[in-house]
Write a protein that binds this DNA or RNA. Structure first.
Lengths: 256, 256
DNA sequence: CGGTGTGTTGAATGGTCTCAACACCTGTGG
DNA sequence: CCACAGGTGTTGAGACCATTCAACACACCG
């Protein structure tokens, strides 16, 4: 394949389309912060270099919608910094966030030739962007990549099923507790200390759209958990979890 | 990650063949009725024979739970007849059905060494059962199979996201309409005649657990749709859809 | 400073659930 | 033939949880 002929020069301040921040063709994959995560971890340095030729690094400002629902699915993304939300909408504006995705996450796969979901940057998000064709070529060459993608998909399916249980059968209190506990697991692993701190890049509205609730209900429920001594609110979007075990019990529906 | 477009589109539906009952080792894969569907369609006759050696045909009576939530994930299944429900439960008995799966469906993917979901036969279900190890061996040999699995997983992911939107943001009426319309698409494709008939193997309780509602609400909502001239109830679990277009509009949330 | 976005709290509404009764079907057995 | 039981589905009445509508506090930023 011919070397990519991407425009060189300084990254523009706020281009209409895609920002090319610093790197062309991601030649620095070997030292990339997601080198050991996501799909990249499935390849060795040499193979990765080949993958790199298919990639473009892009930086998104907060609020940028970089995958449009129903748009032509011509690109894939690997998140290298920040957090994004994936969502589906109804014509009247009702919205369901199907997941928050962070560093190392791969996204953009679609069943038809169009995206079935949208994606929007929450904070500043950096991604490696692959065109559909070029990724397909790399995948063709390295079947291990495909295995990795399957593994990612399986993980997401499990998460999706868990979320269906939450949306279909859990109370508001259980939903919020589940969300917080999931965040704890992400940040601390299985050993969660009492007083563990959480910081959220997303707003209450995002949390509400993720949990199938309204902002008011999320706010009220958090207040309720605080009154019950399970949480302590800090500045900004910071929450300390005083009783992780009780939170988990509520999340699993083990509370009267 | 999100759903995938790497794999090619769906194979066209082919005429069904006779089921050969009571086979062991599925030596008759070439004439199996799912030959052209699901993962089997990814292989040629010769390769399929190798797959066959890894499979055992099993028949489940209605109500049989053949995948237990949290049990050791040591097998995969390919459904060759009947319909099964996949579900997740809470300790107090609340249940969410995450999907109904029919002929051609592959299931058993797990992230850890344990199933994150349960599966129960609705009517009489026949499956090809693969041990984990043997399927892995076959997959190792035929990477095309892996691509096929990725494609299936991507499809399920899209369905799961759609279901999250339903569970999190749709009204009871919209949920029931969505369910019915989805069934229409399954049975009739994109061209749905007025008066199209649907037959359900599942009970109202199953539908309720799928839609995140109660049986009473499902029943009431169906009655409401009937009163509005959208449906006509037949004997048994049969429903005729008199106004598919209006049903679709309701399903998409385009009704005041 | 005012304006906007975000978060909290209160009061009232309403959609769905809970509890309850009843209709229907099927198979069983007198 | 009928009586009966159990499973399934429908319908009604009231309760409740989350929503809607509203007001206000607060931070940030021009």
């Amino acid at each position: 394949m011919a070397p990519s002929s991407l425009p060189e020069g300084q990254p523009a301040l706020r281009p209409r389309r895609l920002v090319i921040a610093g790197m062309e063709g991601c030649t620095g994959c070997a030292v990339c912060e997601v080198r050991a995560r996501g799909i990249c971890s499935a390849l060795n340095d040499q193979e990765l270099e080949q993958l790199a030729r298919a990639a473009v690094r892009v930086t998104m400002p907060p609020g940028r919608v970089f995958v449009e629902e129903g748009a032509k699915a011509d690109a894939f993304f690997n998140i290298t910094a920040g957090t994004a939300k994936l969502f589906k909408s109804l014509p009247d504006g009702r919205r369901q966030i199907t997941g928050f995705v962070g560093v190392g996450h791969f996204l953009g796969l679609a069943v038809s030739d169009r995206y079935a979901f949208g994606a929007e940057a929450i904070d500043q998000v950096k991604v490696c962007r692959f065109s559909r064709e070029r990724l397909e070529m790399v995948v063709e060459e390295f079947p291990r990549l495909e295995r990795r993608l399957l593994s990612e998909a399986a993980n997401e399916l499990v998460a999706a099923q868990e979320q269906m249980l939450l949306l279909g059968r859990k109370t508001a209190r259980e939903r919020v507790a589940s969300f917080l506990y999931e965040q704890l697991l992400d940040g601390y692993g299985n050993d969660i200390p009492s007083g563990a701190k959480l910081h959220f890049p997303m707003t209450r509205a995002d949390i509400a759209d993720f949990l199938g609730l309204t902002v008011e209900t999320v706010s009220r429920t958090l207040s309720g958990l605080r009154r019950d001594g399970l949480l302590a609110m800090g500045a900004g979007h910071e929450i300390s979890v005083m009783a992780p075990a009780r939170l988990q019990a509520i999340a699993k529906g083990e509370e009267g």
